[in-house]
Amino acid sequence: MSVEAREARQPWILLAPAISAVTLLLLVPLIFIVVYSFWLRTATGADQVGFYLDNWREALTDRFYRDILFSTLRIAAITTIVCALMGYPAAYFIARSRGNKVLLLLLLMLPFWISYIIRTMSWINILGVSGALNTLLMSVGIITEPLNMLYNETTVILGLVHFLLPFMVLNVFVSLDGIDTNLEDAANSLGATKWQSFIQVTLPLSLPGLAAGGLLCFVLGAGTYITPLVLGGPRDAMFANLVFEAIITQLNWPLGSALSLMLLVVLGALVMIYNRYLGMAQLMKGLG
């Protein structure tokens, strides 16, 4: 084999494990889901093989699914904004700190060592009727009766922020860390105040990181179902909960497949828009 041929083959050999994994674990199951979405559920719960548009018709025309989808996108958007507001100052502090950057990053990563479900459930012990916060407020005499703080949309958003904040901080940090601090010094030397140099120099340069963090938070937030299940009240369901219910509770895999594809298309479109205007490179940096 010639050297050129060997060199041309090498990237494919190196990519083969990743391509195989993506094909077997993502592409093939996705094809199954697409096929399933055109089947029907029979009265006994068995699947009727065929090509039926009933599930798609229901998913696209029923107001119920549309409303929950919008509500899901709204909750994901609020979560993303809160993460951005809380995450940016934290990322800025880490990026500009001297000496203890590694330690701070390690602290940021620490929650990932604990299961997401455990982290979500920890809020029950903090905000519950006999939880830490109520106990504290009652012991200092601020309240006499425990407050009902759990099982509503606010606690769902709180749980999501708790889960997603590190993703935002990491992405913004990567962006800020790559900005040459001499640029700020130059702005200051030309008469800009610290605030002006931040607004006109640092913030615009860090926007790709903020956008990448925002995209991650939004997509992960919109696809979650554990948080509303654990911290939500009877009405606080998100779109992924509908998929769960269709597949698990109603044993309606065809409808569940159509619904999951619907969510995938909406979130996929968002990623495409992001890629069109900002590119995926920044996102890869943040994830790396």
Binding site: A43, G45, F64, Q250
Partner: peptide, 16 residues
């Protein structure tokens, strides 16, 4: 009633 009621409950549960 399983197919119809489990589906209806899914909706009622979410405020419908």
């Amino acid at each position: 009633h399983e197919a119809a009621w489990s589906k209806t409950f899914g909706r009622v549960q979410k405020g419908y």
